[in-house]
């Protein structure tokens, strides 16, 4: 049971960004992935979550191929983006942003789960998630442009918690944050791993990954072009 990429290759036109990458993200652990700018870290994040199809190779989540059709995704895979501003709808309030996955799920369960009961349940869940990520009630009524990047990224983490993915890919989740918010978000994601979620933490910040992740792999040794295919590329022990 894990998120496994095998022989993943990614090309943009003539340029090969990823060449036969093997990677395993295990539940309950934080796997750090590092690599220089342009080494294909973000492309790999999109492939692992099904937002982009690999040009060759496979991605299996708990043994099943990752659903890549928009509108038909399973919700097992989450992606935490680098820029919380780009990752939130500027027209919604923080409360609504956090509740989005809950609302989407409730619709999926059919007509039985409608009405005031569901609304109250949703409000309770949002308050609980907000407390967990350390957002106060007054912030929940604001729009993204009225809070700081650190506060907004906490809301994005809360939203990721609401979606309850089995694997969460984090693409530079702290690049826009100050040191204090970075430490907070790192701890939140670690606590998520302790609940059994598999976390892939992508970052160019070696010091951060060294302090945070259980294991760290370097993408440039995993199958970025021109580096060959060293033996024992499997990322996770």
């Amino acid at each position: 049971m894990s998120l496994v990429a095998e022989g993943v290759t990614c090309r943009y036109g003539q340029q090969t960004v990823l060449d036969g990458v093997d990677l395993t993200v295990e539940p309950g652990r934080v796997l750090g992935l590092t690599g220089p700018s342009g080494s294909g870290k973000s492309s790999l994040a999109r492939i692992l979550t099904g937002l982009r199809s690999p040009d060759s190779g496979t991605v299996l989540a708990d043994g099943r191929p990752v659903a890549a059709r928009r509108g038909r995704m399973s919700g097992d895979l989450g992606l935490l983006h680098q820029s919380p501003r780009a990752a939130t709808d500027p027209r919604m309030r923080l409360r609504g942003i956090i509740a989005q996955p809950l609302t989407a799920r409730a619709r999926g369960t059919g007509p039985g789960a409608r009405g005031a009961g569901r609304k109250a349940d949703e409000a309770r869940r949002v308050a609980e998630l907000a407390r967990r990520v350390g957002l106060t009630g007054d912030l929940l009524d604001r729009r993204p442009d009225q809070v700081s990047a650190g506060q907004l990224q906490r809301a994005c983490v809360a939203r990721a918690l609401a979606a309850a993915p089995r694997y969460l890919v984090c693409d530079e989740p702290t690049a826009m944050l100050d040191a204090a918010s970075t430490a907070t978000v790192a701890h939140l994601l670690t606590s998520l791993a302790e609940d059994g979620v598999g976390i892939l933490a992508i970052s160019h910040d070696h010091a951060l990954l060294a302090a945070w992740a259980h294991d760290v792999v370097d993408l440039s040794r995993l199958g970025a072009p021109h580096t060959g295919h060293p033996a024992g590329r499997r990322a996770s022990p």
């Binding site: 928009r70 919700g75 895979l77 992606l79 709808d89 989407a104 799920r105």
Partner: peptide, 20 residues
């Protein structure tokens, strides 16, 4: 937009994304 990608990832349907 990234927030639309995120919505698809947690299982939103095309109709939900269109409306929301």
């Amino acid at each position: 937009a990234e927030y639309v990608e995120a919505a698809y990832l947690w299982g939103s349907t095309r109709r939900a994304v269109l409306l929301r």
